[in-house]
């Protein structure tokens, strides 16, 4: 392989595979936000529930 082909290959692999590794490590270190706004637990009321609920009424 030529030198510039090797350089381009190494740079691309570093950015893309490195980006994947960083993204995974960041997510493992902090999978969720601890300070989300209040609420959001009532998934039955998220509208989808309402869609199906309506069928039976």
């Amino acid at each position: 392989m030529s030198a510039d082909a090797i350089v381009l290959m190494v740079i691309t692999l570093t950015v893309v595979w490195g980006g994947l590794i960083v993204a995974i490590l960041a997510l493992r270190a902090r999978p969720e936000r601890e300070d989300m706004p209040e609420g959001g637990n009532d998934d039955e009321a998220d509208g989808q529930g309402a869609v199906h609920g309506g069928e039976h009424e």
């Binding site: 009532d42 998934d43 039955e44 009321a45 989808q48 529930g49 309402a50 199906h52 609920g53 309506g54 069928e55 039976h56 009424e57």
Partner: peptide, 16 residues
Amino acid sequence: TPASAGQNPSARGEAS
């Protein structure tokens, strides 16, 4: 609606 769906077990099953 969510509450009324909740009164019907089968509806509730589909509701979630």
